[in-house]
Write a protein that binds this DNA or RNA. Structure first.
Lengths: 331, 331
DNA sequence: CTGAAAGCGCTAACAT
DNA sequence: ATGTTAGCGCTTTCAG
C-alpha cells in the first residue's frame, strides 16, 4: 500500500506538503501543488481513512440505526439516506435494533468506538427516556420517526397522533363504528397512533372498546394472529386500522383466511403507501408518509450538525397525506 | 474519553498489560487480570476501534454492497447479513450501487480506505469482468447473487438459468405459447434468467419471439411502461414472466390498467416470493430464492475468509423452489 | 510475567 | 512557502 511518505519522496517534498495539497490548504505554490497531484495520480495514492480519522478525529461514515430493517418505511428512508450521503461524500452504516434496547445500546456503543461522524436514529422508548445517560449520545445525532418532547436534539418526524386521528375519522365518517385497531407494540410510533385512534373515536362520541384494541410486534405473523383473534370474536369489528405495513399484510392475510370481503364485510386502512397497498384489490386507504424526504432531510440535518455542533436544534415535522381508496368504501 | 493509559495508571500497571488482558492474551497473572478488568469496568473504558484498526490492521466492520437497495431480495439478504454479523460481533455498512459501475468503484475504494474487514458484493457486470484490475478487490470478498465463472473468489448464488427454465416450462406446460419476458436490464442476473427463458422455449419447440422479450431497469415504472408496450401489441402475449419483484409490480399495474384478468386473459409469473405476491389476487406463481440463507451463508463465508485468507475458495449454489399459485392456471 | 518503547499513517503546530 | 516533529490511542516486539 502506497502511503503519504512514498508520495512525498517521489515528489521530492515533505509529507506535510502532500497533506496540504490533498486537503486543499493554502500556502502551497501552484507548481508544487500540480506536481504533487501528478505524483499522487501516478502512484495511485489514496489516503488511509483510518489514520486520518485517528489523527484528526474526522470520519466520512454516518450511521443509520433503525428499529426494523424489514419495514418498508425504513427501507425507503435508508434509500434516501444512502442517496443523500453519497452526494455529500459520506458512506452509511446500517444497523438494526429490532426495537431491542440492549441491541440498540450495544450498536450505539460500537458506533462510537468506531468514531463515526454521526448517527441517524429511530430510538426505542428507553433510549428516549435515558437519553442523557447514554454515553454514545455525545455523537452528533438526529432522531427520526420518533421524538422526545424536550430533548436538545435534532429530530424529524410526522404528527402520528394527528395522522391516526385523520384516518380513523375517515373510517367513522364512512359509517364504521366497531373499529378494531392493531398497533405496533412497545414502539413510540405505535402508541402515538393508538392515541390518535382513541381520540378520534372519542371526538365522535364512540366509546373505545378495549377488546378491539390490540398491540402486536410489527411482523406479518403477529398481525395475522392478532387479527384472527379479532375476527373470531362473537361481535367482530366492522373495520380495522393498522399502524404499519408489516402488520397490514398480516391483517389482510387473516381477513382472507376468514373469507371476508373488503370493504363489504369489513373495511381496512393502514399506514404507509406501499406498492402492495396499491396493488391489492381493493386498493388500501392509507396514510402516506414522506419517507424519502424524511431520509434526505435527516441526512442533511446531520451533516450540518457535524459541520457545526453548536448550531441550534431543530424539530422538523413533516406533513402526511390521507390517500382514500376502495378499502373503506361507505358501509 | 478514557483511554488505555488512564486504565493503566489507575490499575498501577502498564498499558501493555491492559492491552493483554483485554485481548485475552496469555502470560498475565490471574489476580492482575481480575484487577485490570475491575478498573476497566469502573472507568467504563472502551477501546478506540480506530486506533486498534490503525495499529493492528483489524476491523469489525463488514460491508454489504448491493446493486439495488430497494429490491426486496436485497432487503431480505441484508436483514440476514445484519443478523449474522451482529452475532459474530461485526457491524455492517450498507452501500448501494444502482447497478452503476462508477458508483460501485467509488464505493469499493472508499470501503478500502476505511480498511473494512471484508465485503459482500453483488457486482456489476463490469466488476466481474475487470475483477483483477480493481485495487479494492484485495479485500476479503464474497460475491452474492452473481458469479464469475473462474474467479478465485467465494461466491454464493442460485442457478438462474435453471430457475428461469423451470418457471418458463411451467407456463408452457399449462398451455401458454406467446410468453412475454420482462427482464432486468444490464444485470447478470437478468440476462441469465433471460437465457433460461429462451432455452425453455426452444426445448419445447417454441421459437422465441424477439418482440416479446424486453429488458428494463428494475423499477416499477419501467416494468409498467414495458408491459404497456407488450399489451398494446396487435397480437399480445398470453403470459408474462418477469425476472424480479420490482418489475413484477409494474407488470401487474399495467395489466390492471388494461383491464385484463389474470390468468383468464393473461397469465403471470415472476421471481421472488414477496408478501405482495402472496397477497395479490390471484396469488402469483414465483421462483422462491432462499434469500435469508444467502445472506447468512455469505456472512459466514466472509468471516471465515477474514480469519483465514488462505483458505480455498468456495462456490455455493443454493436451490430455488417453484411455488405454483393461481396466476398461471391452465389456459 | 510485565514494562518500555517503537510505530501504524496521518495532520497540525511550530520552525525556518 | 515548506519542512520538522510530535503525537492521535493502541498493539507488539524486545528486554528484563
Amino acid at each position: 500500500m502506497v502511503k503519504i511518505k512514498d508520495v512525498a519522496e517521489a515528489a521530492g517534498v515533505s509529507t506535510a506538503t502532500v497533506s496540504r495539497v490533498l486537503a486543499n490548504k493554502p500556502h502551497v505554490r501552484p507548481e508544487i501543488q500540480k506536481h504533487v497531484l501528478k505524483v499522487v495520480k501516478e502512484l495511485n495514492y489514496r489516503p488511509n481513512r483510518v489514520a486520518q480519522n485517528l489523527r484528526s478525529n474526522t470520519s466520512k461514515i454516518i450511521a443509520l440505526v433503525v428499529s426494523d430493517i424489514e419495514n418498508p418505511f425504513f427501507q425507503r428512508v435508508s434509500r434516501a439516506v444512502d442517496d443523500a450521503a453519497y452526494e455529500l461524500g459520506y458512506i452509511v452504516m446500517l444497523c438494526n435494533t429490532d426495537e431491542n434496547p440492549a441491541k440498540e445500546e450495544s450498536c450505539l456503543n460500537l458506533l462510537r468506538d468506531e468514531n463515526v461522524a454521526g448517527v441517524i436514529l429511530s430510538p426505542t422508548q428507553r433510549a428516549i427516556e435515558k437519553f442523557s445517560e447514554m454515553p454514545a449520545m455525545d455523537m452528533p445525532t438526529v432522531i427520526i420517526d420518533r421524538h422526545g418532547k424536550n430533548l436538545a436534539i435534532d429530530s424529524i418526524h410526522i404528527d402520528n397522533v394527528q395522522a391516526a386521528h385523520a384516518i380513523t375519522s375517515h373510517l367513522i365518517e364512512h359509517g364504521y363504528r366497531r373499529i378494531g385497531g392493531v398497533f405496533g407494540g412497545n414502539s413510540i410510533t405505535g402508541s402515538q397512533r393508538h392515541e390518535g385512534f382513541v381520540r378520534a373515536l372519542k371526538d365522535h362520541n364512540i366509546k373505545p372498546a378495549t377488546d378491539l384494541i390490540k398491540f402486536a410486534s410489527p411482523r406479518e405473523e403477529d398481525g395475522f394472529d392478532t387479527t384472527m383473534n379479532l375476527l373470531n370474536m362473537q361481535d367482530r369489528p366492522d373495520a380495522i386500522l393498522t399502524s404499519n405495513s408489516l402488520l397490514a399484510s398480516g391483517v389482510l392475510l387473516a381477513i382472507r383466511e376468514c373469507k371476508l370481503q373488503i370493504p363489504g364485510d369489513i373495511a381496512f386502512a393502514s399506514f404507509d403507501d406501499t406498492t402492495c397497498a396499491q396493488l391489492f384489490e381493493p386498493a388500501i386507504t392509507v396514510i402516506d408518509q414522506p419517507t424519502y424526504e424524511i431520509g434526505r432531510t435527516a441526512t442533511e440535518l446531520l451533516i450540518k450538525r457535524i459541520q457545526d455542533p453548536t448550531r441550534s436544534n431543530r424539530e422538523v415535522v413533516l406533513k402526511t397525506k390521507l390517500i382514500v381508496r376502495k378499502s373503506c368504501g361507505c358501509k
